[in-house]
Simulated assay, not measured.
Amino acid sequence: MRLGTVVGNIWATRKEEGLTGLKFLFVQLEAPDGSPIESPVISADRIGAGIGDRVMITTGSAARFVIQDKDLPIDAVIIGIVDSVDVESR
């Protein structure tokens, strides 16, 4: 799983049949302290995240199974909206 902040929407009126009804968002990946890392990724969203929300995403083959009984062609999916992050400093 990875942390990130939703930074934008993706609008696609035509897409693969299995993706109909899914919302797609741009997520800027982040380190635990909130600093951006890597490039933003497009993530499927079924939980209602919005711009500015800090989210958890999963990527790779695990993301394909967001809908039971379907094997979807997606690489990233939002799996939670983060309330807080506490990181112990050493």
Rank of each mutant, 00 (worst) to 15 (best):
M1P: 15
L3C: 08
G4A: 11
G4E: 12
V7D: 01
G8A: 04
N9K: 06
N9D: 09
A12C: 07
A12S: 09
A12H: 01
T13I: 12
R14L: 14
R14C: 13
R14S: 15
R14N: 09
K15G: 11
K15R: 08
E17A: 08
E17V: 12
E17K: 12
G18Q: 11
G18W: 00
G18T: 13
T20K: 12
T20L: 15
G21Q: 10
L22V: 14
L22F: 09
L22H: 06
L22D: 06
K23N: 10
K23C: 15
K23T: 15
K23L: 13
F24E: 05
F24T: 09
F26M: 10
F26W: 04
F26E: 09
Q28A: 01
Q28Y: 00
E30N: 08
E30F: 02
A31E: 13
P32E: 04
P32A: 07
D33F: 13
G34N: 07
G34E: 03
G34S: 13
G34V: 13
S35E: 11
S35F: 08
P36K: 00
I37A: 07
E38F: 12
E38V: 12
E38Q: 13
P40N: 05
P40D: 07
V41A: 14
V41Y: 07
V41C: 10
I42K: 02
I42S: 09
A44R: 00
D45Y: 03
G48C: 06
G48E: 07
G48S: 03
G48K: 04
A49G: 02
D53N: 14
R54N: 14
R54S: 09
V55G: 02
M56H: 11
I57V: 14
I57S: 10
T58P: 12
T58L: 14
T58N: 07
T58A: 11
G60W: 00
S61T: 08
A62L: 15
A62S: 10
A63L: 07
A63F: 02
R64M: 06
F65W: 06
F65N: 04
V66F: 03
V66R: 03
V66C: 12
V66T: 10
Q68I: 15
Q68C: 15
D69E: 13
D69N: 12
D69K: 04
D69A: 15
D71F: 14
D71Q: 15
L72R: 02
L72E: 10
I74D: 02
D75W: 02
A76D: 09
A76T: 10
V77A: 07
I79S: 08
I79T: 14
G80N: 02
G80V: 11
G80Q: 00
I81D: 03
I81V: 11
I81N: 02
D83C: 01
D83I: 06
D83Q: 00
D83M: 01
D83T: 09
S84F: 04
S84C: 09
V87G: 06
V87N: 03
E88T: 08
R90M: 15
R90P: 12
